[in-house]
């Protein structure tokens, strides 16, 4: 006998989710913890991470992971809140990294100064270089960001400036490895919650409006290029911050800062973690970076691996893990007969 009954999935919000909307969340510890627990797990987890991983090597991995997380947050912010797809995370890393290295090795600035200066100046340089493609919609931004790291790496190589292929060696490191790790972890958490705050502020709404419908923004008497430039400045500042930290971690700066890993891994992490959630990219990095370390001996196969995962997720599961997890947390589902 053929079963002709059909079922459909029904999703319902959990009662506690509705009770925690608005002021009622303060009613009891249960509601409070329902709201704050996921955030606490993330914060405490990130803070404990250097303590629980085995050995120096994996502590280094945690640091690198945080750099990637900064880049991934920057990608997610630019792509899903401003509508600018950046294929060149390496460009931001390179700009910040080279600036920090020059400031440190040539002018002798300590890391505490080079990192903020490199972040701000680097972001300004990146914004300036990307300015021509900001008035336009479409693929131009992606194309230009894709080109810059490739071309810059080649220029440095060909002209033998900034240390050429050998790079700049002898960059100062952080005071000790605990400072290094907790500095980058604090930066990731600050960036994460800061950007989350930003996109819900009034100017964040303007960014989203620029993405949704730039003509209406222009009709309101606002210069879209100006707001896009601000957003690119914020996004590239995160990338440059990562780059500046990276050269102090490696104590070296070279054209491998323009390597493809920095461009593709944050994108993969964002898509896997959940586009437009900002937490998702961090989650994606937590998954991808350790796997990539395990695959280190396979060389460029890692990039093939990210690319394939990325393609699989974008084609078949474009919502990402974070959105899925959020749904499971807030809703339950059941099958109802149609």
């Amino acid at each position: 006998m053929v079963n002709t009954e059909q079922f459909r999935r029904e999703r319902l919000d959990r009662g506690i989710k509705i009770r925690t909307d608005g002021l009622y969340a303060l009613m009891s510890w249960r509601e409070l913890s329902y709201l704050t627990l996921p955030r606490l797990i993330l914060i405490v987890g990130m803070l404990l991470l250097p303590l629980i991983v085995p050995g120096m090597y994996w502590q280094k991995v945690v640091t690198i992971l945080c750099i990637y997380a900064l880049l991934a947050i920057s990608f997610d912010f630019l792509a899903h809140y401003v509508g600018l797809v950046s294929l060149g995370g390496a460009f931001f890393i390179g700009a910040g990294g080279y600036l920090a290295a020059i400031l440190n090795s040539t002018y002798g600035f300590p890391p505490i100064l080079t990192i903020p200066i490199a972040t701000l100046v680097g972001a300004a340089v990146c914004t300036l270089l990307l300015l021509p493609c900001l008035p336009l919609r479409g693929v131009y931004f992606a194309i230009v960001t894709l080109m810059y790291p490739l071309v810059l790496a080649r220029i440095i190589e060909a002209l033998d400036i900034l240390g050429g292929t050998d790079g700049i060696v002898g960059v100062d490191s952080f005071a000790n490895r605990w400072v290094e790790q907790y500095a980058v972890i604090a930066m990731v958490l600050l960036a994460l919650f800061g950007i989350r705050r930003l996109v819900n502020l009034d100017i964040g709404l303007v960014f989203r409006a620029v993405m949704d419908n730039d003509q209406a923004v222009r009709a309101s008497g606002m210069n879209i290029s100006y707001y896009k430039a601000i957003a690119v400045f914020i996004g590239s500042a995160l990338g440059c911050l990562g780059g500046a930290c990276l050269v102090h971690i490696y104590m070296w700066c070279g054209i491998s800062l323009f390597a493809l890993d920095f461009s593709i891994l944050p994108i993969a992490a964002t898509v896997i973690g959940g586009s437009g959630t900002l937490v998702g990219p961090v989650l994606g990095c937590l998954i991808l970076v350790p796997i990539s370390e395990l695959l280190r001996e396979f060389g460029t196969l890692r990039i093939v691996f990210y690319s394939l995962i990325l393609m699989g997720f974008i084609v078949f599961r474009s919502e990402g893990l974070m959105v899925y997890g959020e749904r499971k947390y807030h809703q339950f589902q059941r099958w109802v007969k149609v």
Binding site: L205, R208, A209, D212, N213, A216, M222
Partner: peptide, 17 residues
């Protein structure tokens, strides 16, 4: 051309900005 993803009153935040 409203900003489709935003609530109606949030739509006006943009011109007010």
């Amino acid at each position: 051309r409203p900003y489709y993803t935003l609530p109606a009153y949030k739509n006006l935040i943009i011109p007010l900005f």
